[in-house]
Protein backbone atom coordinates (compact mmCIF):
# COMPACT_ATOMS: atom_id res chain seq x y z
CA UNK A 1 0.00 0.00 0.00
CA UNK A 2 2.78 2.42 0.99
CA UNK A 3 4.71 1.54 -2.20
CA UNK A 4 1.65 2.10 -4.40
CA UNK A 5 0.86 5.40 -2.71
CA UNK A 6 4.45 6.59 -3.11
CA UNK A 7 5.07 5.45 -6.65
CA UNK A 8 1.81 5.14 -8.57
CA UNK A 9 -0.32 7.95 -7.14
CA UNK A 10 -0.07 11.54 -6.05
CA UNK A 11 -1.07 11.13 -2.38
CA UNK A 12 -2.90 13.90 -0.55
CA UNK A 13 -4.33 14.05 2.99
CA UNK A 14 -7.14 16.50 3.76
CA UNK A 15 -9.51 17.50 6.55
CA UNK A 16 -13.09 16.75 5.47
CA UNK A 17 -14.45 19.36 7.88
CA UNK A 18 -13.01 22.10 5.63
CA UNK A 19 -13.26 20.35 2.27
CA UNK A 20 -16.94 19.54 2.43
CA UNK A 21 -17.76 23.14 3.36
CA UNK A 22 -15.45 25.31 1.30
CA UNK A 23 -17.09 27.31 -1.46
CA UNK A 24 -14.33 27.75 -4.00
CA UNK A 25 -12.87 25.86 -6.96
CA UNK A 26 -11.13 23.30 -4.72
CA UNK A 27 -14.30 22.59 -2.73
CA UNK A 28 -16.41 22.30 -5.89
CA UNK A 29 -13.87 19.93 -7.45
CA UNK A 30 -13.81 17.72 -4.34
CA UNK A 31 -17.58 17.55 -4.05
CA UNK A 32 -17.80 16.78 -7.79
CA UNK A 33 -15.54 13.75 -7.20
CA UNK A 34 -17.29 12.63 -3.99
CA UNK A 35 -20.73 12.94 -5.58
CA UNK A 36 -19.81 10.14 -7.99
CA UNK A 37 -19.54 7.77 -4.99
CA UNK A 38 -21.78 6.84 -2.06
CA UNK A 39 -20.81 9.75 0.23
CA UNK A 40 -22.78 12.60 -1.27
CA UNK A 41 -22.72 14.61 1.94
CA UNK A 42 -26.50 15.06 2.12
CA UNK A 43 -27.41 17.65 4.72
CA UNK A 44 -23.76 18.63 5.09
CA UNK A 45 -22.80 15.14 6.33
CA UNK A 46 -19.35 13.64 6.35
CA UNK A 47 -17.55 12.57 3.17
CA UNK A 48 -14.70 10.83 4.99
CA UNK A 49 -12.85 8.00 3.28
CA UNK A 50 -10.18 7.15 0.74
CA UNK A 51 -10.77 8.27 -2.82
CA UNK A 52 -8.82 7.51 -6.00
CA UNK A 53 -9.54 9.71 -9.01
CA UNK A 54 -8.01 11.36 -12.05
CA UNK A 55 -6.73 14.93 -12.21
CA UNK A 56 -9.78 15.61 -14.35
CA UNK A 57 -12.08 14.48 -11.52
CA UNK A 58 -13.19 11.00 -12.64
CA UNK A 59 -13.73 8.80 -9.56
CA UNK A 60 -11.91 5.46 -9.80
CA UNK A 61 -12.62 4.12 -6.30
CA UNK A 62 -14.01 5.06 -2.91
CA UNK A 63 -13.81 3.07 0.32
CA UNK A 64 -13.68 3.73 4.03
CA UNK A 65 -12.77 0.49 5.75
CA UNK A 66 -10.61 -0.30 8.77
CA UNK A 67 -9.03 -3.41 7.23
CA UNK A 68 -5.75 -2.46 5.51
CA UNK A 69 -5.91 -5.48 3.17
CA UNK A 70 -9.32 -4.45 1.88
CA UNK A 71 -8.07 -0.90 1.39
CA UNK A 72 -4.92 -2.08 -0.39
CA UNK A 73 -6.96 -4.21 -2.80
CA UNK A 74 -9.34 -1.31 -3.46
CA UNK A 75 -6.44 1.01 -4.29
CA UNK A 76 -4.88 -1.64 -6.54
CA UNK A 77 -8.19 -1.95 -8.41
CA UNK A 78 -8.30 1.83 -8.83
CA UNK A 79 -4.82 1.81 -10.33
CA UNK A 80 -5.85 -0.92 -12.77
CA UNK A 81 -8.88 1.20 -13.78
CA UNK A 82 -6.65 4.23 -14.30
CA UNK A 83 -4.25 2.29 -16.50
CA UNK A 84 -7.19 1.06 -18.58
CA UNK A 85 -8.35 4.61 -19.36
CA UNK A 86 -7.66 5.99 -22.86
CA UNK A 87 -4.20 7.54 -22.96
CA UNK A 88 -5.72 10.93 -23.75
CA UNK A 89 -7.28 10.94 -20.24
CA UNK A 90 -4.22 9.89 -18.27
CA UNK A 91 -1.09 11.09 -20.11
CA UNK A 92 0.93 13.93 -18.53
CA UNK A 93 -0.72 17.23 -19.33
CA UNK A 94 -4.05 15.59 -20.24
CA UNK A 95 -5.85 18.13 -18.05
CA UNK A 96 -5.04 21.80 -17.52
CA UNK A 97 -5.19 22.78 -13.83
CA UNK A 98 -4.61 26.55 -13.50
CA UNK A 99 -3.47 28.17 -10.26
CA UNK A 100 -6.24 29.46 -8.00
CA UNK A 101 -5.87 33.15 -7.18
CA UNK A 102 -5.44 33.75 -3.45
CA UNK A 103 -8.37 36.18 -3.54
CA UNK A 104 -10.68 33.47 -4.84
CA UNK A 105 -10.03 31.02 -1.99
CA UNK A 106 -12.86 30.60 0.51
CA UNK A 107 -11.53 32.68 3.42
CA UNK A 108 -13.82 30.95 5.91
CA UNK A 109 -12.70 27.40 5.12
CA UNK A 110 -9.25 27.72 3.55
CA UNK A 111 -6.78 27.43 6.42
CA UNK A 112 -3.08 28.27 6.05
CA UNK A 113 -0.47 29.24 8.67
CA UNK A 114 -0.38 32.98 9.47
CA UNK A 115 2.40 34.82 7.60
CA UNK A 116 5.84 34.07 9.12
CA UNK A 117 4.27 32.02 11.93
CA UNK A 118 6.44 29.82 14.11
CA UNK A 119 5.08 26.32 13.50
CA UNK A 120 5.46 23.48 15.99
CA UNK A 121 4.57 19.83 15.53
CA UNK A 122 3.06 18.19 18.58
CA UNK A 123 3.07 14.54 19.58
CA UNK A 124 1.39 13.18 22.70
CA UNK A 125 1.51 9.73 24.26
CA UNK A 126 0.31 7.97 27.38
CA UNK A 127 3.30 6.80 29.40
CA UNK A 128 4.16 4.49 32.29
CA UNK A 129 7.04 4.33 34.72
CA UNK A 130 9.57 1.71 33.58
CA UNK A 131 11.74 -0.51 35.76
CA UNK A 132 14.52 2.09 35.62
CA UNK A 133 12.15 4.71 37.01
CA UNK A 134 12.09 6.61 33.70
CA UNK A 135 8.89 7.32 31.82
CA UNK A 136 8.40 4.91 28.91
CA UNK A 137 5.82 4.23 26.21
CA UNK A 138 3.14 1.83 27.43
CA UNK A 139 3.91 -1.70 26.26
CA UNK A 140 0.32 -2.79 26.56
CA UNK A 141 -2.93 -1.37 27.80
CA UNK A 142 -5.82 -3.15 29.52
CA UNK A 143 -8.80 -4.37 27.58
CA UNK A 144 -11.32 -1.61 26.92
CA UNK A 145 -8.65 1.10 27.07
CA UNK A 146 -7.62 2.91 23.89
CA UNK A 147 -4.83 5.18 22.72
CA UNK A 148 -1.45 3.51 23.02
CA UNK A 149 0.01 5.30 19.99
CA UNK A 150 1.55 8.72 19.55
CA UNK A 151 -0.91 11.48 18.61
CA UNK A 152 -0.33 14.47 16.33
CA UNK A 153 -1.28 18.11 16.07
CA UNK A 154 0.25 21.41 14.97
CA UNK A 155 0.76 24.71 16.85
CA UNK A 156 0.84 28.22 15.40
CA UNK A 157 2.65 31.10 17.13
CA UNK A 158 2.22 34.32 15.15
CA UNK A 159 5.14 36.49 14.01
CA UNK A 160 4.27 39.28 16.45
CA UNK A 161 4.12 36.77 19.29
CA UNK A 162 7.47 35.06 18.68
CA UNK A 163 9.25 38.32 17.85
CA UNK A 164 8.23 39.63 21.28
CA UNK A 165 10.22 36.86 22.95
CA UNK A 166 13.65 38.31 22.15
CA UNK A 167 14.11 41.93 23.22
CA UNK A 168 16.68 44.05 21.35
CA UNK A 169 18.78 44.40 24.51
CA UNK A 170 18.59 40.71 25.45
CA UNK A 171 21.00 39.69 28.23
CA UNK A 172 22.00 36.41 29.85
CA UNK A 173 19.97 35.79 33.01
CA UNK A 174 16.97 37.74 31.76
CA UNK A 175 13.56 36.12 32.04
CA UNK A 176 10.81 36.66 29.51
CA UNK A 177 7.20 35.62 30.00
CA UNK A 178 5.46 34.01 27.06
CA UNK A 179 2.64 36.29 25.87
CA UNK A 180 -0.65 35.60 27.64
CA UNK A 181 -2.32 34.68 24.35
CA UNK A 182 0.34 32.03 23.63
CA UNK A 183 0.07 30.56 27.12
CA UNK A 184 -3.70 30.46 26.81
CA UNK A 185 -3.51 28.86 23.33
CA UNK A 186 -1.12 26.16 24.53
CA UNK A 187 -3.19 25.45 27.63
CA UNK A 188 -6.61 25.43 25.98
CA UNK A 189 -5.84 23.66 22.72
CA UNK A 190 -2.58 21.74 23.07
CA UNK A 191 -2.01 20.63 26.67
CA UNK A 192 -4.58 17.88 26.47
CA UNK A 193 -4.82 14.16 25.88
CA UNK A 194 -5.62 13.64 22.19
CA UNK A 195 -4.34 10.07 22.06
CA UNK A 196 -7.80 8.52 21.65
CA UNK A 197 -9.23 10.95 19.11
CA UNK A 198 -10.56 14.44 19.47
CA UNK A 199 -10.89 15.48 23.13
CA UNK A 200 -12.93 18.44 24.37
CA UNK A 201 -10.74 21.55 24.32
CA UNK A 202 -10.33 23.42 27.62
CA UNK A 203 -12.32 26.61 28.19
CA UNK A 204 -10.55 29.72 29.46
CA UNK A 205 -12.14 29.15 32.88
CA UNK A 206 -10.79 25.61 33.07
CA UNK A 207 -7.20 26.88 33.09
CA UNK A 208 -6.62 26.85 36.85
CA UNK A 209 -2.88 27.68 36.85
CA UNK A 210 -0.48 28.56 34.07
CA UNK A 211 2.97 30.09 33.77
CA UNK A 212 5.55 29.79 31.01
CA UNK A 213 8.83 31.65 31.11
CA UNK A 214 11.96 31.77 28.99
CA UNK A 215 15.27 32.26 30.78
CA UNK A 216 18.16 33.55 28.67
CA UNK A 217 21.10 31.21 29.20
CA UNK A 218 23.62 32.57 26.72
CA UNK A 219 23.92 35.47 24.31
CA UNK A 220 26.54 35.56 21.52
CA UNK A 221 26.69 37.80 18.44
CA UNK A 222 25.19 34.90 16.49
CA UNK A 223 22.51 33.48 18.73
CA UNK A 224 20.49 33.56 21.92
CA UNK A 225 19.95 30.31 23.82
CA UNK A 226 17.05 30.07 26.25
CA UNK A 227 15.38 27.56 28.56
CA UNK A 228 11.61 27.33 28.65
CA UNK A 229 10.06 26.38 31.99
CA UNK A 230 6.45 26.25 32.94
CA UNK A 231 3.57 24.54 34.61
CA UNK A 232 -0.14 24.35 33.96
CA UNK A 233 -3.24 22.82 35.45
CA UNK A 234 -6.47 22.44 33.50
CA UNK A 235 -9.47 20.80 35.14
CA UNK A 236 -13.21 20.58 34.63
CA UNK A 237 -13.82 21.54 38.27
CA UNK A 238 -12.13 24.26 40.30
CA UNK A 239 -11.40 21.58 42.90
CA UNK A 240 -9.07 19.28 40.97
CA UNK A 241 -9.91 16.38 43.28
CA UNK A 242 -13.52 16.59 42.12
CA UNK A 243 -12.70 17.20 38.44
CA UNK A 244 -13.67 14.33 36.14
CA UNK A 245 -11.10 15.48 33.56
CA UNK A 246 -7.78 17.24 33.92
CA UNK A 247 -4.11 17.64 33.06
CA UNK A 248 -1.55 18.75 35.63
CA UNK A 249 1.84 19.23 34.00
CA UNK A 250 5.27 20.79 34.10
CA UNK A 251 7.05 22.06 31.00
CA UNK A 252 10.72 22.14 30.07
CA UNK A 253 12.54 22.85 26.84
CA UNK A 254 14.97 24.97 24.87
CA UNK A 255 14.78 27.76 22.33
CA UNK A 256 17.53 29.04 20.06
CA UNK A 257 17.20 32.38 18.27
CA UNK A 258 19.48 33.19 15.33
CA UNK A 259 20.39 36.88 15.63
CA UNK A 260 21.56 37.06 11.99
CA UNK A 261 18.38 35.77 10.38
CA UNK A 262 16.25 37.10 13.29
CA UNK A 263 14.37 33.83 13.54
CA UNK A 264 14.08 30.90 15.91
CA UNK A 265 15.98 27.84 14.72
CA UNK A 266 14.72 25.68 17.58
CA UNK A 267 11.70 26.02 19.83
CA UNK A 268 11.27 22.65 21.43
CA UNK A 269 9.74 21.60 24.71
CA UNK A 270 8.05 18.79 26.58
CA UNK A 271 5.00 18.81 28.85
CA UNK A 272 4.80 15.94 31.30
CA UNK A 273 2.15 15.34 33.90
CA UNK A 274 -0.90 13.52 35.14
CA UNK A 275 -3.90 13.30 32.82
CA UNK A 276 -7.29 11.91 33.68
CA UNK A 277 -10.78 11.56 32.29
CA UNK A 278 -12.34 11.47 28.85
CA UNK A 279 -14.87 13.31 26.69
CA UNK A 280 -17.76 12.20 24.54
CA UNK A 281 -15.64 11.48 21.43
CA UNK A 282 -12.57 9.97 23.08
CA UNK A 283 -13.80 7.21 25.35
CA UNK A 284 -11.46 4.48 26.58
CA UNK A 285 -9.13 6.41 28.91
CA UNK A 286 -7.07 4.54 31.48
CA UNK A 287 -8.78 4.60 34.87
CA UNK A 288 -7.46 7.18 37.31
CA UNK A 289 -4.62 9.66 36.87
CA UNK A 290 -1.84 8.55 34.57
CA UNK A 291 1.30 9.95 32.98
CA UNK A 292 0.92 11.81 29.69
CA UNK A 293 3.82 13.32 27.75
CA UNK A 294 3.54 15.88 24.96
CA UNK A 295 6.46 16.93 22.74
CA UNK A 296 6.49 20.19 20.79
CA UNK A 297 9.14 20.69 18.10
CA UNK A 298 9.67 23.53 15.64
CA UNK A 299 9.33 22.59 11.96
CA UNK A 300 10.57 24.52 8.95
CA UNK A 301 7.15 25.13 7.40
CA UNK A 302 8.49 23.98 4.03
CA UNK A 303 7.09 20.44 4.07
CA UNK A 304 3.45 20.23 2.92
CA UNK A 305 2.66 18.42 6.21
CA UNK A 306 3.93 21.48 8.14
CA UNK A 307 1.08 23.51 6.66
CA UNK A 308 -1.70 21.41 8.20
CA UNK A 309 -3.80 23.57 10.50
CA UNK A 310 -3.99 22.91 14.24
CA UNK A 311 -7.15 20.96 15.02
CA UNK A 312 -8.45 23.86 17.13
CA UNK A 313 -7.93 26.33 14.24
CA UNK A 314 -11.34 25.40 12.90
CA UNK A 315 -12.40 28.24 15.23
CA UNK A 316 -9.43 30.30 14.14
CA UNK A 317 -10.50 33.51 15.93
CA UNK A 318 -10.65 31.74 19.28
CA UNK A 319 -7.45 29.84 18.48
CA UNK A 320 -5.47 33.02 17.86
CA UNK A 321 -7.02 34.74 20.89
CA UNK A 322 -9.01 37.33 18.95
CA UNK A 323 -11.98 36.68 21.24
Amino acid sequence: MVKMAREDFVPVAMDDWYQRRRKDAEGEFFRGVANQGPRKGDGGGTRQGVYAFTAGGKLLAYRNHGDPIIMRDEVAKALKKFNALPEAERKPGAVTVPDIEEAKLDKQYHRAPPKDALILRQHGRVLEKGDSGDMESCKEIPSGVRGIYSSRDMVWITADEWRSLVPADVKAGQTIELPAKVVERLCRFHLLDNTRGEPPMWSKEQIRRSAMTLTVDKVTPQQVTMTLRGAALMTTDADDKKADRGFDCTILGTAVFDRTTKAFTAFNFVALGDAWGEGGLDKGARPGRNPLGIVFEQVSGKDPADKVAPQAAREVGAYLGRY
Binding site: D15, T54, F82, R152, D153
Partner: peptide
Protein backbone atom coordinates in the same frame (compact mmCIF):
# COMPACT_ATOMS: atom_id res chain seq x y z
CA UNK B 1 -1.52 19.97 -10.68
CA UNK B 2 1.11 17.40 -9.78
CA UNK B 3 -1.07 14.52 -10.99
CA UNK B 4 -1.65 16.02 -14.41
CA UNK B 5 2.04 16.93 -14.76
CA UNK B 6 3.13 13.38 -13.86
CA UNK B 7 0.30 11.47 -15.54
CA UNK B 8 -0.74 9.79 -12.26
CA UNK B 9 -4.05 9.35 -10.44
CA UNK B 10 -4.68 11.03 -7.08
CA UNK B 11 -5.06 9.10 -3.82
CA UNK B 12 -7.01 11.24 -1.35
CA UNK B 13 -7.20 10.33 2.34
CA UNK B 14 -10.05 12.49 3.61
CA UNK B 15 -10.85 12.37 7.33
CA UNK B 16 -12.71 14.57 9.80
CA UNK B 17 -9.44 16.03 11.05
CA UNK B 18 -6.42 15.89 8.77
CA UNK B 19 -4.68 12.52 9.21
CA UNK B 20 -1.36 14.40 9.24
CA UNK B 21 -2.45 16.79 11.94
CA UNK B 22 -5.22 15.49 14.11
CA UNK B 23 -4.54 12.65 16.54
Amino acid sequence: QKATAEGKPILLWEMDGNPLGCT
